[in-house]
């Protein structure tokens, strides 16, 4: 499948970049998920002090920041793909598709600014 994507996207690099970004961000998010499971498994029931000191550690702030950025990019590519699969064609369909993409874009930029604000406001 990689070979096919490579040959299909020779004309425009966009598809290939999306393909690669989607996989790299998936790996970043996957690592974050695994790391949270490990943290919870190792620490059992954390009280507020332990919980807060973990999530405000420099290591957690960096990893969370990287992860919310990865989530925004990953969700953009995923939702863009869903939109172009189901809202096809020109005219009204195109207006609808662009509106959908605009709303997703605004929501994801909001998510990114809000979550980064939450993460760094904790300092």
């Amino acid at each position: 499948m990689v070979d096919r994507y490579l040959s299909e996207s020779r004309g425009s690099k966009r598809g290939l970049i999306d393909f690669i970004v989607q996989r790299l961000t998936a790996i970043v998010i996957g690592i974050y998920v695994i790391h949270l499971v490990v943290i919870f498994a190792l620490n059992g029931d954390m009280d507020y002090a332990a919980w807060r000191s973990y999530f405000t550690s420099g290591y957690s702030l960096l990893l969370s920041s990287l992860t919310v950025l990865a989530i925004a990019l990953h969700a953009w590519i995923g939702m863009w793909t869903v939109g172009t699969d189901y809202i096809r064609g020109e005219g009204i369909a195109k207006t609808l598709r662009l509106t959908y993409q605009g709303l997703i874009g605004v929501a994801l930029v909001f998510f990114l600014i809000w979550s980064l604000g939450l993460i760094w406001g904790l300092l």
């Binding site: 507020y48 919980w51 807060r52 999530f55 405000t56 919310v68 989530i71 969700a75 995923g78 939702m79 869903v82 997703i104 929501a107 998510f111 809000w114 979550s115 939450l118 904790l122």
Partner: peptide, 25 residues
């Protein structure tokens, strides 16, 4: 994936509440 578009925002909001104060935790 579509569930997570809303779901991740919801989890992020809950996580932010747990970090606000011992009461909200």
């Amino acid at each position: 994936g579509i569930v997570l578009i809303v779901g991740v925002g919801y989890l992020t909001y809950l996580l932010s509440l747990t970090l606000k104060s011992p009461e909200s935790f």
